[in-house]
Design a protein around this nucleic acid. Structure first.
Lengths: 329, 329
DNA sequence: CAAGAGATGGACAACGTTGTCACGAACAGG
DNA sequence: CCTGTTCGTGACAACGTTGTCCATCTCTTG
């Protein structure tokens, strides 16, 4: 900038005025400055600018895995809202590791992001207290923050699962299995709760071998499913606790001679083309991201109420057939 | 930092030394400084630090759509490599709009990212010349840069398509259709070329109504496919030019009474569970991202050769059955 | 023609760090 | 006891911007 000023024969501040299109510069000088800028290939250094203005126009997004379709869609929505507010987006995957989540969050804070959208991996987010006090707007998505009062955007996990399980019950099933993610994960727990509630509401007992919580690796899911289907009281239908589980379940069930009813949490591509087409409880990934990001910017604009908000987005049961398969016996 | 220094009764620089774990500080003073840091909840401002050190430890990733599974996987790989080099990742989706791509790239450059990984949307990337001259390492992925000599990581689009089309020919097909993305997109053009080459190599003529290039919206793909299947010389097999097209094709073909052979470019989840299971030419999305990011950091370390490199990753034909359906007549 | 108003431009400090250098104290060697 | 070396420390400038404030210059107006 100094070079540009020298070349154009003007002061530093005048260059700054031209670059920022501030008023009070003769068209003539502006042209001279612009020419110098072009000649020197000058580009304003936004880091320095932002250091001075104390707004970084960037937000950080921490989620579990950028490659998961659910989070990919969520990211894209957050990105779009950020862009519409003139902010850039840092992204990072925690891989469900609290330490990594904290590392990422603190790295973003050290860069002085204006705000954070976090899919919490850990149990305790009090490490964020000083940051929030320092003015970093923070919105949690998909799961509530641990031991921290902050904005959160969730889906109706328990309700959605209840609806999905009730759908299976309505089609005659009495022995229904549930395979979920690791029990420590909030969404997994909520969905398990929904399953229990739906069963209880129908007066159905739940045998311990009918539900299994754990990592969503294909091996684990396959083993759990096999155990449910081959026990003394085999299940006739399965509720899959998330899209990873559903996908593996579809594979395993396709290899069996007799059809097994299936409803999954989370929609996924091609669910409608499978045979049978898969009935799912769909959550609105872009919607969650959008609402969260909007809440973030509302906070940044200082418009938001002081208290933490809790938004719960509805889910939608999409009936495609796999939930209507009758019990084998 | 000034406050910390005052509270600990030391100089500014000593605090800096403690924060950066530089040698030459008595354990005693270090402890005093640390106490002040904790008391004040001080966190170093990395923006300022990076302004001073002139390295931002961040890279920018511009791609078409973060929500596309292919790019999501690629992003994750880039992120992992960046993390292992201690860098944070800015991401942005261009939505296939050259203006938006340029906006994003320049915004990243204004933040003085150390490097860029770009899936080019436009035809002309000379606007990047000054940035590259200024030292921003740049690697293009998936498609080569327009009118610019830079590192690029590609997949073997033409070769992969040749192989896929040859697979259909080997199973008796003579009239084979091709539906690709917009003709301006490099990968789309290369795949079309592969299709033509495979047909020519087998001595088969290609009728103009057998191939269609354009947006990958379901409507367009469906219309194109209908036209090919209902013409006077209907195709008996289809090569789908990318995962969006394949997905729509699967839907359309599933609704037809007579089976049509299909091979798609890009693997996708559940391709193996469909009936018939879909044969695909799989590219290695994480591999592309990883190789590109590694090349980027090689440049940043100054280890890389001066000349631009061009890496072409192989593809893999995964035979699952849909390519082996014989011609209807 | 003087004076006030408005337009235009520049000097300077500040944002929060780090690199450079110099200073003083402690210590070892002659 | 003097000199030279090492170690710990802090003052200061610099990174590249922008906000504040003041100086100048050119009009208009009484």
């Amino acid at each position: 900038m100094k070079d540009v000023a020298a070349r154009a024969g003007v002061g530093l501040k005048t260059v700054s005025r031209v670059v920022n299109e501030e008023p009070g510069v003769t068209p003539d000088t502006a042209a001279r400055v612009q020419a110098a800028i072009d000649a020197l290939g000058f580009r304003r250094n936004d880091s320095a600018r932002l250091l001075r203005t104390r707004r970084t126009a960037s937000v950080g997004l921490v989620l579990e895995d950028l490659a998961d379709p659910f989070y990919a869609a969520l990211s894209r929505a957050v990105e779009d809202v950020a862009r519409s507010h003139g902010a850039l987006l840092f992204t990072g995957s925690s891989a469900e590791d609290p330490r990594r989540e904290q590392e990422l969050v603190l790295a973003f804070c050290a860069r002085r992001v204006d705000g954070l959208v976090v899919v919490p991996a850990g149990e305790d987010h009090r490490y964020l207290l000083p940051e929030i006090a320092a003015g970093v707007a923070t919105v949690f998505v998909d799961r509530p923050a641990g031991r921290l009062d902050a904005d959160v955007v969730l889906t109706d996990n328990a309700g959605g699962t209840r609806e999905g399980v009730a759908h299976l019950i309505a089609h005659g099933h009495r022995r229904i299995g549930f395979i979920g993610d690791q029990p420590g994960i909030h969404t997994a727990g909520e969905r398990l709760r929904g399953y229990r509630e739906a069963m209880a509401a129908a007066g159905l007992a739940v045998r311990p071998e009918w539900y299994a919580m754990g990592p969503t690796t294909p091996e684990r899911v396959e083993a759990a499913l096999d155990a449910m289907l081959n026990g003394t009281e085999p299940v006739t239908a399965l509720f899959a606790g998330n899209n990873r589980v559903t996908v593996t379940a579809v594979r395993v069930l396709a290899a069996r001679p007799d059809p097994v009813a299936l409803v999954g949490f989370d929609d996924f591509e091609l669910a409608d083309v499978l045979d049978p087409a898969i009935t799912v409880v769909a959550q609105d990934a872009p919607g969650i991201g959008r609402v969260a990001a909007q809440q973030l910017f509302r906070r940044l604009d200082g418009i938001a109420a002081e208290e933490a908000t809790r938004t719960e987005l509805p889910v939608r049961l999409i009936e495609r057939g796999s939930g209507e398969i009758p019990p084998a016996r």
